[in-house]
């Protein structure tokens, strides 16, 4: 798929805009048309990724936000104050950025808004060109679908299934299953583990393909409507002319 994920994003990139793009499932922060940060309710933030692994104590993070948040330099401050290595911050931030951007760029029906001039308190860590972010979001979608082409399970509660004989889950997948209580969704589990949400989606799709989780997703909305007939098909009468249809059938059979 070569088409752009969001036409608005293409335009903002061209005009080298600075601000925040808000969509249904998340937000992208731009500086001079490049992506500097992304956030999504589905993706654990940088704070979760750093503190859940024990790399940074929660207080350390909060102090940095309190000290440098107003100046919008939390990222730089984490390094300057010796809490994180420069490469470490960059890698972790990029991981969080691409993770949230995947959700923020999922096709949505709601409005897309851009607020000029709005910045994020994390500050500038490593800007990523917008086309790179878009390409990665598309690659991620295609990767998920190549494993198990049913996106419904991404947001549904994870329900483990009796594995039966055969190979069990991998060690990594087992940690996901251990937290699956039939209520938590993949993003919930990702947050508890302090892992990027996309990585947990991959785990869950692989588990689905291996038959290790329940894939009968309970519909959350109204059942899908009957597929609409193409416009060129005239309205079908509730009371079809049976006699006419019979004559048509006979005529067709006679000619074939």
């Amino acid at each position: 798929m070569a088409s752009a994920v969001s036409p608005m994003l293409v335009r903002l990139t061209e005009e080298k805009a600075t601000g925040v793009l808000v969509r249904d499932h998340g937000a992208l922060y731009l500086v001079d048309g490049e992506v500097v940060h992304a956030e999504s309710p589905a993706a654990p933030g940088l704070d979760v990724l750093l503190t859940a692994s024990g790399r940074l104590p929660r207080e350390g993070w909060e102090e940095a936000v309190a000290e440098a948040g107003v100046r919008r330099e939390v990222g730089r401050h984490l390094v300057a104050s010796g809490r994180l290595g420069c490469g470490e911050l960059e890698i972790c931030h990029l991981g969080a950025l691409f993770d949230a951007a995947y959700f923020a760029l999922t096709p949505c029906s709601g409005p897309t808004r851009f607020r000029y001039g709005v910045g994020h308190w994390i500050g500038r860590v490593r800007p990523v060109p917008t086309p790179v972010v878009e390409r990665e979001a598309l690659r991620r979608g295609a990767l998920l679908d190549s494993i198990w082409p049913h996106p419904e399970i991404d947001a549904a509660p994870v329900v483990p299934r009796d594995p039966g004989p055969g190979r069990g889950p991998t060690r990594r997948q087992a940690t996901v299953l251990a937290l699956a209580d039939g209520v938590r969704t993949p993003p919930d589990i990702a947050r508890m583990l302090g892992r990027p949400a996309f990585n947990t989606l991959l785990d869950v799709r692989r588990l689905a393909a291996a038959g290790l989780v329940d894939t009968a997703v309970r519909p959350s909305g109204p059942p899908p409507e009957r597929p609409a007939l193409p416009a060129w098909v005239p309205e079908v009468s509730d009371d079809p002319d049976i006699a006419l249809l019979r004559r048509l059938r006979d005529a067709l059979e006679a000619t074939l």
Binding site: G95, R139, R140, L143, L202
Partner: peptide, 11 residues
């Protein structure tokens, strides 16, 4: 390349 091997992304 520096690669995240869970997601398959080159950082």
């Amino acid at each position: 390349a520096l690669v995240d091997y869970t997601s398959g992304m080159a950082l």
